[in-house]
Simulated assay, not measured.
Amino acid sequence: MDELIRRRVYGADHDDPDPGPRPGHEYRELVGGPLDGLLLDVTGWTRTRLGEGAALGTEIGSYGPGGRTLYGPRAADSRLWDWEGDTP
């Protein structure tokens, strides 16, 4: 967990003085693509939901504002979510 302390959480405001992970929350690291290196807060997600991955809104993906970028759990380590592409 120590290596997560200085990391930014997806969805945190850019001007947030503390955009890092919060105690008691569960996170997945996003790997590759436009959100590479960010943490996704998955606190309270069901096992089924975690297995589905996520389509996350971002302005910096292939489709610009309004687009989404897709991430899914890595088979060998479900704490890491790999980029699977972008969608409008």
Rank of each mutant, 00 (worst) to 15 (best):
L4Y: 15
I5G: 03
I5T: 15
R6N: 12
R6F: 01
R6E: 12
R7G: 01
R7S: 14
R8T: 14
V9K: 08
V9D: 07
Y10R: 10
G11R: 12
G11K: 09
G11L: 04
D13K: 15
D13H: 12
D15N: 14
D16L: 03
D16W: 07
D16N: 15
P17T: 10
D18S: 09
D18T: 12
D18E: 12
P19Q: 06
G20V: 06
R22W: 09
P23M: 13
G24D: 05
G24R: 08
H25L: 00
E26R: 14
E26D: 11
E26Q: 12
E26T: 15
Y27V: 07
Y27G: 05
R28A: 02
E29F: 00
E29T: 14
V31E: 04
V31W: 01
G32N: 06
G32V: 05
G32I: 07
G32D: 02
G33T: 04
G33V: 05
P34I: 04
P34K: 05
P34M: 04
P34T: 11
L35P: 00
L35F: 01
D36S: 13
D36N: 15
D36W: 01
G37W: 06
L38V: 01
L38S: 01
D41E: 08
D41Q: 08
D41V: 08
D41A: 05
D41K: 08
V42S: 01
W45E: 09
W45H: 10
T46F: 01
T46P: 00
R47A: 10
T48M: 02
T48G: 04
T48R: 14
R49H: 13
R49L: 09
L50Q: 13
G51Y: 07
G51E: 08
G51T: 11
E52F: 01
G53K: 04
A54L: 03
A54P: 03
A55V: 05
A55M: 11
A55H: 13
A55L: 10
A55Y: 10
L56T: 03
L56M: 07
L56G: 02
G57S: 12
G57Q: 11
T58E: 00
T58M: 00
E59F: 01
E59W: 07
I60P: 00
G61R: 03
G61M: 05
S62W: 10
P65A: 12
P65S: 10
P65G: 02
G66E: 02
G67V: 02
G67Y: 03
R68P: 00
R68T: 02
T69V: 11
L70M: 14
Y71C: 05
Y71M: 06
Y71L: 02
P73Y: 09
A75D: 12
A75E: 12
A75K: 13
A75P: 01
A76S: 15
A76Q: 12
D77F: 03
S78V: 09
S78N: 05
L80K: 12
D82E: 14
D82R: 14
D82W: 08
